[in-house]
Design a protein around this nucleic acid. Structure first.
Lengths: 181, 181
DNA sequence: TGGACATACATAGTCAGACTATGTATAGTG
DNA sequence: CACTATACATAGTCTGACTATGTATGTCCA
């Protein structure tokens, strides 16, 4: 019954774009979506080099610089000097940043509740599983674009490529939904 | 403990934001996401007044004006004068617009295929259902009078057989797939 | 050891989508 | 026939995103 993967992806992005507008209205009095997205990545991946953050967030390196600067001004992230390489400026989320992220999630959820009230248990489970599937794909696919390095530094093994292929009705989805980076 | 709806919604929006970045890279040589989102709404809802389009797209009325102007310049949409009310400028998608939308979907799907290759049938089904659930909520929560879910059509019943572009529902009141309050 | 090249991040400048505030034309009403 | 409400257009601004480029540091090799 799986019609066409092409159509599925088209619908996925279309719905995604519409949801983005809804979220923009929901998180009104707070920061931008880019801020929260970046904070989420920081919380999930811990101290991370700026270039790696840019790749994971699918933004350009200058954009990542701006976002981190913004977070640092808010006290939600800090830059750490790398003792082994003075060029590197790793970024960490601060406790204040974690708190802010949690607060945003709460506010967002409250704003979206009317739209998503009355979901059946089955629907909630479906959404949880779908989120898990998408997250696995987002985390697992290493950035195709920015990786011209032929150099084999091989210091920090990237934590990606979790290779999660849990089928539906497996416990993986609910766990992924609850963990929340 | 499966359902903390608050956490689910937070995860949903976070994943959504990350997917948006992926899509931005995928549809590279073409128009913006706002263009395709608007075009999708136009195809789904047929001739539609500008204010209604803005509400459905979750953008302000001036933004809708700009988007429609852009579409009209491309020849992808046309403004229709309302014989009963000279203030009204309804908008319709043109055949050229439908073709452009289909082309975008194809290009997008091709670009995203590597990331989503190897999905199991169950995973595809889960994503299809999730898309249906979200679409129902997006379509349903618009007007003060929420359209009641009429029948319990399975989401898997999307046709997808006749044309290259399936889904995106049919015009009219087909929004209630899978709502089942 | 020192110069050439590569890498990591920062800065500058630009573009587009989104908003609020406001203007203009038409419709409805007492 | 004004008087208000409605529907859309216009003006101006903010911000996230990009490309192009600059600066500092690391690495390689003669």
């Amino acid at each position: 019954m799986s019609s066409d993967l092409s159509a599925l992806l088209g619908d996925l992005i279309t719905v995604n774009n519409r949801l983005t507008r809804v979220a923009a209205h929901a998180a009104h009095g707070t920061e931008s979506a880019a801020t929260w997205r970046t904070l989420s990545v920081l919380r999930q991946l811990g101290p991370i080099r700026l270039g790696e953050l840019a790749a994971r967030s699918r933004v350009s390196q200058p954009t990542a610089t701006k976002l981190v600067t913004h977070l640092a001004e808010r006290g939600w992230a800090e830059r750490l000097a790398d003792p082994l390489d003075a060029r590197v400026a790793s970024t960490v989320i601060t406790p204040s940043g974690v708190a802010a992220l949690d607060a945003w999630r709460s506010e967002l959820a409250e704003a979206l509740l009317p739209m998503f009230s009355g979901l059946t248990d089955a629907e909630v489970e479906t959404l949880e599983e779908a989120i898990g599937i998408l997250r696995a794909r987002l985390d697992g696919s290493e950035t195709p674009a920015v990786r011209p390095a032929v150099h084999t530094t091989s210091v920090g093994a990237l934590p990606g490529t979790s290779a999660v292929h849990s089928s539906s009705t497996s416990p993986g989805a609910s766990a992924a939904a609850g963990a929340s980076a």
